[in-house]
Design a protein around this nucleic acid. Sequence first.
DNA 1: GAGGATTTTTCGGCACGCCGAAATATCCTC
DNA 2: GAGGATATTTCGGCGTGCCGAAAAATCCTC
Lengths: 214, 214
Amino acid sequence: MPSPSAAIDDYLKTIYHHTEWQDDPVTPSQLAAELSLAPSTVTEMVQKLAAQGLVSHRPYGPVSLTDAGRARAAAVIRRHRLIETWLVREFGYAWDEVHDEAEVLEHTISDRLLEGIAARLGHPSHDPHGDPIPDAAGVVAREPFVLLGIARIGHTGRVLRVSDRNPELLRALQGAGVDVGHVVTVAGRDTVRIDGGAPIELPPAAASAVWLTA
Amino acid sequence: MPSPSAAIDDYLKTIYHHTEWQDDPVTPSQLAAELSLAPSTVTEMVQKLAAQGLVSHRPYGPVSLTDAGRARAAAVIRRHRLIETWLVREFGYAWDEVHDEAEVLEHTISDRLLEGIAARLGHPSHDPHGDPIPDAAGVVAREPFVLLGIARIGHTGRVLRVSDRNPELLRALQGAGVDVGHVVTVAGRDTVRIDGGAPIELPPAAASAVWLTA
DNA sequence: GAGGATTTTTCGGCACGCCGAAATATCCTC
DNA sequence: GAGGATATTTCGGCGTGCCGAAAAATCCTC
């Protein structure tokens, strides 16, 4: 049981993301791409994680978290999302500016400081992207959702989450008034109305990046 | 000119501490003791720092900062002390609890966040120990001082600084009311009066750990 | 189901920061 | 100023996390 490692946490976090919204098995090559590492590096690390009981993996197969791995990943993600929330609320960072800073601090802030931040924020259950923040026990609050591109025309829902992989899209949506927490009505695969106003056409990528309450 | 390194910054910071209040040349063995590293490790790192122009050092001699090294050290110390101040003021850490957290965060916080913290604190010039915080340009505010054990009996001064190496002593002094910013009158090598009250005897170590305005 | 394409793994290697043991330089005492 | 004590440096080595090249397994198409 070696001491925590930033690299290990990054792997766990990345694997976790694949099971957060749909249950995707992760292949080593996906991991390599997402972590910007050589495939050989990923193989080695995955073997190490498997030896520590954090992931399950048989040779040439996909990778998935064990319960222990999921718990640890949830803890890292809690840190990441709390830090993002804090940077936005208290330091005026924009949504798309917090990621790099959180990426570093999630590995270095003490539990004590983290909980201090959580307390000061009022123990939020969601970060500024609308992603749920696991509580200190690793439990995640969930809400039923539909993707914008899949919701039926006329469906009205609150924007629950905006996928945070694409800063450009984030800004475009924000500019169009499609912000987490806002209520919109679906007018097409990538078109919405706000407050019954005129239809607003969003970038095509929005169809699979905007999550509405069901 | 490699990218910043936490290890390098730790060496520079430690060397800097030796010239902060008196101009002590630092020997490799002192560095090794203060950094809790093997002497051989220090030799290697010092050679690396010398090659980068951050310290000057000839074989078997002491180590001192170059101007470039001092500038970099001041930047690290600025980070450290701002973070300490922030932890005390905004998260209710006690003086003697902030050091470890600051030790880590000083290497990982971005410039942007650091300056956000500085702004929120009102750009303080001193940390909770009374140590001066270099400004963003590395310039340090100085004030004339005397050590408690050296001040003449009857001298009255404000507590400017309490050496932060010894948490136990810190607590003892705080308990006795010898806090940074408080005004005391010297009644002996390790005895003071506060507000003309009865003499308070401090631990012997206080003589060389408490700094008063001259 | 054969054979080539793709994915994964193995293997040797590297940079970093560290260590202990042994060699070497300096210091200090008589 | 000789000789031992002490400080410093050199050297081989280690763990972590990474890489590229080559080998091995799997997949996919015909």
